[in-house]
Structure formats: C-alpha cells, structure tokens
C-alpha cells in the first residue's frame, strides 16, 4: 500500500509488465509472497508493475527512508539457465535493461546507484532468468518461470532476515 511506502523499514518491490510473458515475474513473486507467507510487520511487499521508477525517485528524496529495498525482476543474461534465480548488483544490471526494454521500465541504473550511494539504503536485486519475453503482448509466465517463483520467495525471505549493510 502506498501509505506504508515511507513507514516500513523493508520494501520488496516487484517490477515488470504482466502483459509480456516472463517479464511479469516480479509481480507474480509479490502476489505469491503475499498469499502464501506471513511477512514481518516491518516488510511491505508491493507489485509496482511498470511504475517503479517514480516510486524510486520519491524514495531517493524522502526524509523517511527504508533501510532496505529488495527489487524483484526478470533478466535475460548470457550463460544463465531459464528459471534460474540469482542476486545481482546494481552494476550487474544488463545494459539492455537500461536502454532497449522501454516496456519493462526497470528502474534506471542511475536512480538505483543514487539510492545506494547517497542514501544509505541497502539495495538488493533478485532476478530470474527468463525463458522468453515475447515481442508483442502475450500475458502469462512460462512453466519454468512459474516454478522459479517459490525459489525467489525463499531467497527474498533470507534477504529480509539478513542483517546486512551496503
């Protein structure tokens, strides 16, 4: 819920477009988290779809900031297997995620770097390797990405519990 955005210490933000196949992984993970797990009161899990960018602008400038942001998304890396879930760094975001995927609206590297470098917020990014993102509208995850949802949820829970720093 928007009202909790600046109140909760930990934000789990799913991003991606549910209209484009495996690109909807982030929102699907958020839905699964909310429906199947009891998240601590300190955690806000939100499906931001393709709206994550302006939320990050607000977080960057807000006086009240979360301690940790966990972003959940889908990527298309070389040398990764479809459905593989892993953590990447801000620097590890594929270049084409920052330029070519206008539909995806992945938060720009610029904003994430600014958040990490200037605000003290711990930024974690959990991604799953896509099987296929269609060129045109085609909702629904591939089977292998559906199976990855639980894996991502478990990794997110570990990140929520971790007493980490930048």
């Amino acid at each position: 819920m928007i009202k909790d955005l600046f109140e909760k210490p930990v934000l789990v933000l799913g991003c991606g477009n549910i209209l484009f196949g495996d690109d909807g992984f982030g929102p699907a993970v958020i839905n699964h988290l909310k429906e199947n797990y009891s998240l601590p009161d300190s955690v806000l899990a939100m499906d931001l779809g393709t709206s994550i960018r302006d939320i990050l602008f607000d977080l960057a400038l807000s006086e009240k900031k979360p301690q940790k942001i966990i972003i959940v998304d889908a990527v298309d890396y070389p040398n990764r297997n479809p459905g593989e879930v892993f953590e990447i760094t801000v620097e590890g975001i594929p270049k084409k995620k920052t330029s070519d995927f206008s539909l995806h609206q992945f938060p720009t590297v610029n904003i994430l770097q600014e958040l990490r470098d200037h605000t003290g917020i711990v930024v974690k990014i959990i991604v799953a390797q896509t099987n296929e993102i269609p060129d045109s509208v085609q909702p629904g995850l591939s089977k292998i990405m559906e199976e990855a949802i639980v894996v991502a949820c478990e990794q997110i829970l570990s990140l929520i519990k971790a007493n980490d720093t930048m």
């Binding site: 209209l19 206008s102 539909l103 060129d135 045109s136 509208v137 085609q138 909702p139």
Partner: peptide, 11 residues
C-alpha cells in the same frame, strides 16, 4: 529510437 508497445490491439 524509442521502443514501441506492440501487439496490444491484437491482444
């Protein structure tokens, strides 16, 4: 060059 949103009309 701006990526376009394709296929929505058909959808």
């Amino acid at each position: 060059h701006v990526q376009s949103f394709r296929g929505f009309e058909k959808f």
